[in-house]
């Protein structure tokens, strides 16, 4: 969230005030091109939990940084997909749930190594995607290509901050009230 959701500067001489800033954002949203916008310097991390075949969502984060390029993928396994606003495929890769941990011990003196694979029933793991500003959902398909989980990314979209209108409204109400009392008083006279 660090980079993607930044709003405005404290002493922004280059940026207009909060009202016109919001107006510009609204205009920008209206006139935005529907083309895919990939921000290569941001990464989306999805934290998941695996428990005996069941995958559940834990947490997500969009931050400035890099995602792996996934040049090496298992031939078969789970598939992670990043879907866009019209459900189009933006990015995908195949992965194995990391339940097989190789844990080994080495002897610094005799240079022997021993140990092996430990299979976990339950573990947390992370899926990393390059951040697409128009991504709608992360979908996980099991090895038989059935959707086993979806994570909505809608709330990641930027929501412009509403300007503080309350004090203007209060002032207006006070002025109207004062005028009414004054008029009433005049009438009475």
């Amino acid at each position: 969230m660090k980079a993607a959701l930044r709003t405005q500067r404290k002493t922004g001489n280059m940026l207009p005030g909060p009202f016109s800033f919001s107006a510009l954002l609204v205009l920008a949203v209206f006139f935005a091109s529907p083309a895919l916008a990939v921000n290569s310097s941001s990464v989306l991390l999805i934290n998941l939990h695996y428990d005996r075949g069941e995958i559940t969502y834990k947490d997500k984060l969009v931050k400035c940084g890099y995602a792996p390029d996934y040049r090496i993928q298992p031939g078969e396994g789970y598939v992670a997909e990043l879907r866009g606003q019209k459900d189009e495929l933006l990015y995908s890769f195949t992965f194995e749930v990391p339940t097989k941990v190789v844990a080994e011990i080495s002897d610094p003196l005799f240079k022997k190594i021993s140990g092996g694979i430990i299979t976990l029933n339950t573990t947390d793991f992370v899926l990393q995607f390059p951040h697409f500003s128009d991504a709608k959902e992360v979908v996980v398909l099991n090895p038989r290509k059935f959707k086993v989980m979806g994570v909505s990314l809608q709330e990641e979209q930027f929501v412009p901050q509403r300007p503080a209108w309350w004090w203007l409204l209060l002032l207006l109400l006070l002025v109207i009230a004062a005028c009414l009392v004054y008029r009433h008083l005049k009438k009475e006279e």
């Binding site: 991390l45 934290n47 931050k63 940084g65 890099y66 792996p68 990391p98 992370v126």
Partner: peptide, 13 residues
């Protein structure tokens, strides 16, 4: 893993 990868993502990883 989430903490490790959050930090690791500052570099190509």
């Amino acid at each position: 893993e989430f903490q490790v990868k959050t930090i690791a993502s500052f570099c190509p990883n």
